[in-house]
Amino acid sequence: MELFDKLGVDWRLLIAQIINFSLLLFILYKFLYKPVLNLMEKRERKVRESLDNAKKIEEKLLNTEREKEAIIKKAKEKELNIIREAEKKANERRDNIIKKIEKETGDLINKTKEKLRLEKKETINEIKKEIAELIVLSVEKILQEKMDDEEDKRIVEKIVNDINNKNL
């Protein structure tokens, strides 16, 4: 203890210094460390939160953009499909119509031809008949006196037959 005395250690001073330092410790803790550290922590939390939020928003934006693009792509594809189908349908329809018209026209032509042929035949027959009658008449006139009715009839028939046989 003599050593401590020589070094100037005095219990009263020691206690005074301990009180001094304890006071400092207490006051600094209460008024400096606690509020400052709390403040720093709060700020850190806030910054982290806002950074997180910003990240989330960015992600959301990216997602929305991606979705939008997907939708647009899908719509375009659909549109293209519709157009293609419509084109196909239109083509089919056109072809059908053309075919139908062609067929109808063909039929009409055929029918007309047939009709014309029949008419022609009929006309020819009628003309033949008339010519035959004419000939009969003229021949009758020429041979009026020389032949009786029976003879006359026979000759006419014969002539008609001949004509028919020759021409047809």
């Binding site: 400092l24 400096l32 403040l39």
Partner: peptide
């Protein structure tokens, strides 16, 4: 005995306390 070191350390403590009060108000 009020020694010079006691005075100095008290001055340090007091100035630190005053400073922390001052800062605490303006945080």
């Amino acid at each position: 005995p009020v020694t010079n070191t006691l005075l100095i350390s008290t001055a340090i403590v007091l100035s630190l306390i005053i400073f922390s009060f001052f800062l605490n108000k303006r945080l």
